[in-house]
Computed example of a mutant assay.
Amino acid sequence: MKPTPKSKTIARALLAWFDAERRPMPWRETRDPYRIWVSEIMLQQTQVKTVIPYYQRWIASFPTVEKLARARENTVLKHWEGLGYYSRARNLHRAAKEVVREHDGRVPDTLDGILSLPGIGRYTAGAVLSIAYNQPVPVLDGNVKRVVSRLFGLMENGATRKSETRLWEHAGSLLPATRPGDFNQSLMELGATVCLPQNPMCLLCPIAKHCEAFKQGEPERYPPPKQQPETKKIEVSAAIIQKEGKVFIQQRPRDGLMGGLWEFPGGKREKKENPEDCLIREIQEELGVTVAIREKLMTLKHAYTRFRVTLHAFTCDIESGRLRPTHCERWRWVRHRDLDKYTFPAANVKIVKHLKENGSS
């Protein structure tokens, strides 16, 4: 779809609003494509306020794509610890190596070139190309989908390929030839701060008079809700096995969920099984030993995309048997003070913090 006089008016109004109202963010202080790329990957499914300290630490340690490419995977994952969706960090690392190897350390400035990198889809490509390279390439994240759906009165949520394509076309029709990066950011900013999913602040919107949903008086009808996947509840038991001032940890298989991260051994509770019996069974199966439970350390609740996990952590001693871990990549006995050197899933991070604050080793 080609820009129209109306879209040009909308672009002018949004850019003027963005110039006056945009929130300060560290990645908005640069046009470095590498740093913009890092911020966009971190911002996927994560709030701005959460991302800012992670971004700052990341850039302090990996200020250039070359520095990231040379880093060890464990160091990269440690910097990502707590952000979740660790495949994002692994893909960033892999892509950095590819940029150095195939592109002489320069992030590609063509759509085909940047889309060839691991972990980069159409949205991230559009963000980097428009913001860093000033190219007129649209973006379409959750915020932009909502703005576009309401602005044009489209009953589209991007749940199907046809719906997604239609939203991309309309987002592209709004894009001005000048300041495309700022315009894309203005759409995202509008969706994040004004055109909210519930109770949108239409009276503060700089383009309300052009918005079909506002004219109808029912902005919250747009976009139609997506069908949400069923959330599954899981209970897990974890063993904090201690010996001579050290605690046992193991590394998850690299080709599985949260692959390569370290954890305390354990597993899912079966039907009609209490957390203690679950722990004894899982440790026998995983490590080939029988443990004696000393006490319950804590119960943690953690939410993933499709799971709600309750984790029961117990301190244990090996009672009998020879340690033969079979369900992990590697395993180690580690002093409490050295646990920070390893990357753990979010729930395990809370256990590590407790051990470091209350342990004696």
Rank of each mutant, 00 (worst) to 15 (best):
L77Y: 00
K6A: 15
A292Q: 13
G153Y: 01
C211Y: 08
A208W: 09
K296S: 09
G142Y: 13
C316S: 01
L339D: 04
L175E: 06
A346D: 12
G172I: 09
G288D: 10
I52S: 06
P136E: 12
A132K: 01
E81T: 03
R161H: 08
R254D: 14
T9Q: 15
L154S: 04
I52E: 06
W262E: 05
H327P: 01
G181D: 04
P176H: 07
R166P: 06
V309Y: 07
E276Y: 07
A313E: 06
K356E: 05
S237Y: 03
F18R: 06
G126S: 05
T110L: 03
Q47F: 03
L111P: 00
G84E: 04
M258S: 10
K233H: 14
R337T: 15
L339H: 01
R324P: 04
P253Y: 14
G267N: 09
I59T: 07
F314S: 03
D255Q: 11
T165G: 09
P223Y: 12
G321R: 11
A347E: 02
S39I: 08
A159P: 09
L140S: 03
R90P: 08
Y222D: 01
I283T: 02
D340C: 10
P197G: 02
C278D: 13
V100P: 01
K209V: 14
E319A: 14
L203H: 13
W80A: 08
R335M: 11
Y222I: 03
S130W: 02
T110Q: 04
C211L: 06
V291P: 03
A171E: 07
K243R: 15
L77V: 05
T165I: 02
H79F: 00
C195Y: 01
Q228Y: 11
W37S: 03
G217H: 09
P63H: 04
G260D: 11
S61T: 15
I114Y: 05
G105F: 04
S87M: 06
D277G: 05
Q227R: 15
L196Q: 08
W17P: 00
K209Y: 10
D104E: 15
A71K: 01
L111D: 05
P176R: 08
Y34N: 05
E286S: 07
H327Y: 15
E285S: 12
Y342R: 07
F62W: 03
N274H: 09
N91Y: 14
W168F: 08
L297I: 15
T315H: 08
H312D: 11
L14D: 00
Y123V: 12
A89L: 08
A303S: 14
L203R: 12
K271D: 13
A213L: 08
A125M: 02
W80N: 07
R166V: 04
A127V: 12
E230I: 09
C278Q: 08
D112M: 03
N358P: 05
E273C: 09
R335K: 15
V289R: 02
E218G: 10
L175C: 00
V48H: 00
K215N: 12
P206I: 02
Q284T: 15
F214A: 11
